[in-house]
């Protein structure tokens, strides 16, 4: 992966894979409510994919300079395995940790390439993932950590 387009294609594919993942888990969970939540997550990933497609065609600019708040909630939570009877809390933890992993991946890649367009794109993608992580972490903060 050396060109900007390759990187973007990879990222777009990752978003699609994430969407597929949630849809797949949604098929297996037992309750209708949980199914709906997971399908919503899948929709969220598809929205991310759309943004990246727009970046590829030049309609949208990535903003690596933007400061994204890191709530650092997912960093200290025990990892969750997907199963048929996951709770909303579990689903959020999975989502947060996936976004965190993606963020770390792009960030690490960016450290290894020289300054230039490629680095710019990688950092931009990392920021994009950080935004997604914030989305789920904020949700977790709001809905799960109510008494805490």
């Amino acid at each position: 992966m050396n060109t900007v387009d390759e990187i973007l294609d990879y990222a777009i594919e990752q978003e699609q894979l994430a969407a597929d993942f949630y849809e797949d888990v949604a098929q297996r969970v037992e309750t209708a409510g949980m199914k709906k939540i997971l399908l919503d997550f899948a929709e969220e990933e598809k929205r991310h994919k759309k943004i990246l497609l727009a970046v590829k065609t030049g309609e949208h600019e990535l903003t690596p300079e933007q400061e994204i708040l890191d709530l650092k909630i997912s960093d200290y939570l025990v990892e969750v395995k997907t199963s048929e009877n996951i709770s909303y809390q579990d689903a959020l933890i999975i989502a947060m940790q996936r976004e965190r992993a993606a963020y770390n991946l792009y960030n690490d890649m960016a450290q290894k390439v020289p300054d230039g367009k490629l680095k710019h794109i990688l950092l931009g993608l990392a920021k994009e993932e950080a935004k997604h992580k914030l989305f789920f972490e904020a949700e977790y903060d709001e809905r799960v950590l109510t008494d805490n």
Partner: peptide, 25 residues
Amino acid sequence: SAIGQSSNLDYLSKELQEQLAFEWG
């Protein structure tokens, strides 16, 4: 640890829980 509670629905079968439309307890 006192960071909130959730419900215990063990007395209902999975089918009944689904039928009653429980979502996350």
